[in-house]
Amino acid sequence: MMSLRWTMPLLIMAVLMSCFAIIHSTHASRAYYADLQRLEGTHWYLQEDYSRLMLERSTLASPHRIAKMAQEDLIMRAPDLAAYRTIVEGAY
């Protein structure tokens, strides 16, 4: 008889607690979802930046541009055979 008297409030407590737990976890799930959305957005922007920068870099580093700059701005040229030196790995 004693146990029955205590069981009821205990169960009610448990139900209440699980109610709050549900509220909490629903809220957490919303928050996480918002985070996910934001991160997906960031991911997209970063990828956009990354591929744009890759393109920019390959434009700046294009062999055509480098050859032009080397020859015209820096007045560079391929060395004559007489000026060639080969440094062999492990020779020194």
């Binding site: 000026a83 060639y84 080969t86 062999v88 020779a91």
Partner: peptide, 10 residues
């Protein structure tokens, strides 16, 4: 590739 002809020794 190493050219065959070089002016001076490495």
């Amino acid at each position: 590739q190493r050219p065959e002809i070089e002016a001076e020794t490495p």
